[in-house]
Simulated assay, not measured.
Amino acid sequence: MRELVFVAILAVAGAGQASAQDAAAGEKVFAVCKACHQIGESAKNGVGPMLNGIIGRKAGSVAGYSYSAANKDSGITWDEATFREYIKDPKAKVPGTKMIYAGLKDEQKTIDLVAFLKQFDADGKRK
């Protein structure tokens, strides 16, 4: 009986880990984003704005980047939940955005991506 209880506890513990944030896994997810976005101390705007300090930042506010009116006027301040909703389907969250990305549908990859992005402050330094 003890073995059965122990196995059940391990199964529950393992299930909890599946939804934990993993910044290293999120960095791998970010590899797709690199086609348009940069992050880190040397990040610059490119096809898309640099993503330093995105969590907590007002949408459409990176200096020197030409945002769509839809993004600038969205009234969004990026928190984890809003970013996860946006990255799942950018055009549904902000109709008229110029971001051309079909969306990240895998919830765990989205959670991991947010964990990776949260590491960087507005200057691109890891917290």
Rank of each mutant, 00 (worst) to 15 (best):
L51Y: 08
A31F: 05
G96L: 08
E107P: 01
A115S: 10
M1A: 14
A8L: 15
D123I: 02
Q108E: 12
L51S: 06
P90F: 03
D112M: 04
N52W: 03
F120L: 09
A115L: 04
A81M: 08
K88H: 12
V94D: 12
F120W: 10
V62E: 13
K72P: 00
F6C: 07
E3A: 12
T97V: 11
W78L: 04
M1Q: 12
F30C: 03
I87E: 05
G75D: 14
K93H: 11
N71G: 09
A35L: 09
R2N: 14
V94H: 08
K118Y: 01
V7Y: 10
M99H: 03
G46C: 01
P49E: 00
A24R: 09
V7N: 08
K91C: 07
M1N: 12
G124L: 08
G53R: 01
Y101D: 06
R84M: 15
K44D: 05
F30Q: 01
E41A: 09
A15M: 12
A63R: 04
N71V: 14
G46E: 08
A18M: 13
L113V: 07
G14P: 01
C33H: 02
Y86R: 04
A102E: 11
E80N: 12
S19T: 14
K93D: 11
G46S: 10
I76A: 06
K125C: 08
D106T: 05
I55L: 14
A92H: 10
V5H: 11
G124E: 06
N52C: 07
G96K: 09
I54M: 13
Q21E: 13
K44C: 06
G16V: 07
N52D: 11
R126F: 02
D22N: 15
A59C: 06
K93N: 12
A18H: 03
L113I: 07
F83L: 12
E27A: 15
K127I: 11
A18P: 00
D106H: 02
F83C: 02
Q21C: 01
Q38R: 02
Q119W: 01
L4M: 10
G14M: 10
R84V: 13
V7G: 03
Q17C: 12
P95H: 09
V12M: 15
V29W: 00
I76P: 00
V29K: 00
S61T: 13
A43V: 04
F6D: 14
A35G: 10
I111S: 04
A63T: 11
Y86I: 08
P90K: 03
G14K: 01
G14I: 07
A24V: 11
K58D: 09
V47P: 01
D106V: 07
I39C: 03
D121Y: 08
G56T: 09
E27K: 13
A24I: 07
V5S: 13
Q108F: 05
L10C: 15
K88A: 15
Y101L: 10
G48I: 05
